[in-house]
Nucleic acid binder design. Structure first.
Length: 427
RNA sequence: GGUGGUGUGUCCGAGUGGCCUAAGGAGCACGCCUCGAAAGCGUGUGAGGGUUUACGCCCUCCGCGGGUUCAAAUCCCGCCACCACCGCCA
């Protein structure tokens, strides 16, 4: 959610930032509507407050007269109450509309984020080299060869878009999850295991709803008491966990992380470069998150990206870092950096982590605040989130980058103890 | 899932229709006292919103949402959460 006061005071700045993501004419129209609703809202509030004040005075005079044994003055209660009810209904409608319109607006892209879509993303860093592989096998073939993933049985169970890790594949995936958990703990993040079914308020707070309502799985009242949905990322749970709280300023930055499967509907159809475990309706991800003071945000973003990159580096994978253009980064974020890992079979880089600075956009939706040190005023925290990392993407990258001519795959050194072997071999 | 109980401010806790503009206590902050501290005394101490150059003034909030009433923390209805017991269950 954007700050209505900012729209009121510096409409041009908001408009030009939003124009990086949306059609300028659309932006202008939206801001016009918002300003008008805001104006209506405030004048209704003034009217209602005045009316209430009058009625309170009447009731007080009534009580006082009674106490003094006098006959109370007749009040205009009946008519007044009806009038007040009408005004309140009207205010309710205006506020609902305002909320809907406000919640539809995306976050303001940061200054260094350029307009445009995917094609405008900029690679800002590269680590390592693409490994020289004579005859590249893709991860689907390698998985089959090594018995790591059973796609047929996965589909049998969950339908198209699901798979089942088997044997050493399950162990590799799980070793990755556990290694990442340890690494994040070592980096000072607190480990959380949240519920996977969330109330809709959590989806709204994170900025997924209402816009991406249909992208997640909803359970409906038959199967879930209050129409919960399956979380599409742990980010939704972590943010939601702190809804309506005033965080202890001395505890900021608050650094937490969670492991959860992520459930996403994903558009039907399949890309040739998104086979195997690259894209599915359920995948594993470890997510780091920070709640910080506004002035800590820049440093936190850099620290999180660097941390996530360190993980990829310790696994020995070749990757690049991209600064996403406005149109390609998620609507709730001001700035997003992707860490993309090299996939030899397609010759493309694929996202294993997306680290974002949300400004106060999510905090405003979720009402997560801190108290200004020394002052009494509460302000919204800044939120940052990032994958550290998406294991179901790491998995194919490891297979492909570390494959050997004989079809075996070298296990990254950091995982060898956990897997009990340094090499996955065809069975 | 059933029955009963509970839900008040940072915390404990009083309040069953009207000076509740929420008692009292604890905590916290500041001041007095003190060489310093403790104790004691005094003052202050929530959130959201409207309005104002500002000081301030005003409105809303006693789990949440409705209702009754001139007037609701208090009465009525629905919901949620927690506790206890019963049932079911990995």
């Amino acid at each position: 959610m954007l700050d209505m006061e900012l729209i009121r005071k510096d409409r041009d700045a908001v408009a030009s930032a939003l124009a990086k993501r949306l059609d300028p004419a659309e932006v202008s129209q939206a801001l016009d509507e918002l300003s008008q609703l805001d104006q209506q809202r405030r004048s209704l509030i003034s009217e209602i407050d005045g009316e209430r004040q009058r009625r309170k005075a009447e009731a007080r005079a009534y009580a006082e007269a009674k106490r003094a044994g006098r006959e109370p003055e007749p009040t205009v209660a009946e008519a007044g109450r009806r009038q007040l009810a009408e005004l309140e209904t009207e205010l309710g409608q205006v506020q609902d509309q305002l909320r809907v319109r406000m919640s539809e607006l995306p976050n303001l892209p940061a200054e260094d984020v350029v307009p445009g879509g995917k094609e405008a993303n900029r690679v800002v860093k590269t680590f390592g080299e693409p490994p020289a592989i004579e005859k590249v096998r893709d991860h689907v073939e390698l998985s089959r060869l090594l018995g790591l993933v059973d796609h047929e049985r996965g589909v049998k169970l969950g339908g198209s878009g699901f798979w089942m890790y088997t044997g050493l594949g399950a162990r590799l995936e799980w070793a990755l999850v556990n290694w990442l958990i340890d690494q994040n703990i070592a980096a000072g993040y607190e480990f959380l295991l949240p519920p996977h079914l969330l109330l809709e308020t959590a989806g709204f707070a994170a900025g997924q709803f209402p816009k991406f309502y249909d992208d997640v799985y909803h359970l409906g009242r038959q199967s879930a008491p209050r129409g919960q949905f399956l979380l599409p990322t742990a980010e939704t749970a972590i943010l939601g966990a702190y809804q309506n709280e005033i965080l202890d300023t001395t505890k900021l930055p608050l650094k937490v992380f969670a492991y959860t499967p992520c459930y996403r509907r994903e558009a039907a159809g399949s890309h040739s470069d998104e086979r195997g475990t690259v894209r599915g309706h359920q995948f594993n991800k470890v997510e780091i998150f920070q709640f910080v003071l506004p002035e800590q945000a820049d440093a936190a973003l850099e620290a999180m990206v660097t941390h996530a990159e360190g993980l990829v580096e310790r696994l020995g994978l070749h990757y690049q870092r991209s600064l996403l253009a406005a149109g390609d980064s998620s609507a709730a974020m001001r700035k997003t950096l992707d860490i993309e890992v090299w996939m030899p079979s397609t010759g493309k880089y694929k996202e294993v982590s997306s680290v974002s600075w949300g400004g106060d956009y999510q905090a405003r939706r979720a009402a997560i605040r801190y108290r200004e040190p020394g002052g009494k005023q509460t302000r919204f925290v800044h939120t940052l989130n990032g994958s550290a990392l998406a294991t179901s993407r790491l998995f194919p990258a490891i297979l492909e980058q570390f494959q050997q001519p004989d079809g075996s795959v070298l296990v990254p050194e950091v995982l060898r103890d956990r897997l009990g072997t340094d090499r996955l071999t065809p069975r």
